[in-house]
């Protein structure tokens, strides 16, 4: 919601500190089954993207991370269980450093070194 104070329109300076480092990505609530039973993976920043969607000029966002996960990291062919119409499937919660991603700007959140992003499914049995 609240965009970071960085004026994104004039971010010509690729702040190298913000875009390098590593993040932790966690899966739970059954989502780990879609990612070869891994509950946690560490990814470098910038993301090892195969597609050229994100440029080096801006730090990768959670949206970029989702794209990376679904295109590259996800081994299970049932992509629709993770992403529907280009967005994280309704019913999957995303926590950025333990906070609801709704409080952090959702897909727009810019990843920093040391961040933890957790994807939890609420869709599995009761």
């Amino acid at each position: 919601m609240a965009t970071p104070l960085v004026a994104s329109s004039t971010s010509t300076i690729p702040s190298s500190t913000a875009t390098t480092g590593q993040i932790k990505v966690e899966f739970s609530g059954g989502l780990e089954l879609l990612f070869a039973n891994q509950r946690s993976v560490t990814l470098p920043l910038p993301l090892p993207t195969t597609t050229s969607t994100s440029t080096l000029a801006t730090p990768p966002t959670v949206g970029d991370l989702v794209t990376y996960l679904v295109n590259t990291a996800m081994v299970d062919p049932r992509k629709e269980l993770f992403v529907v119409d280009g967005a994280v499937r309704p019913g999957i919660l995303v926590l950025i450093n333990e906070a609801d991603w709704e409080l952090e700007g959702e897909e727009e959140y810019q990843l920093c070194d040391g961040d933890t992003v957790l994807f939890v499914s609420t869709l599995h049995g009761g």
Binding site: G30, L93, V120, S121, T122, H124, G125
Partner: peptide, 21 residues
């Protein structure tokens, strides 16, 4: 809400099982 149930379980670190039938 299911969302809050999952968040409650997460933040209290409850031990639950989550595989679909």
């Amino acid at each position: 809400y299911e969302k809050e149930i999952v968040l409650y379980a997460h933040h209290r670190k409850l031990d639950y099982f989550s595989t679909e039938c």
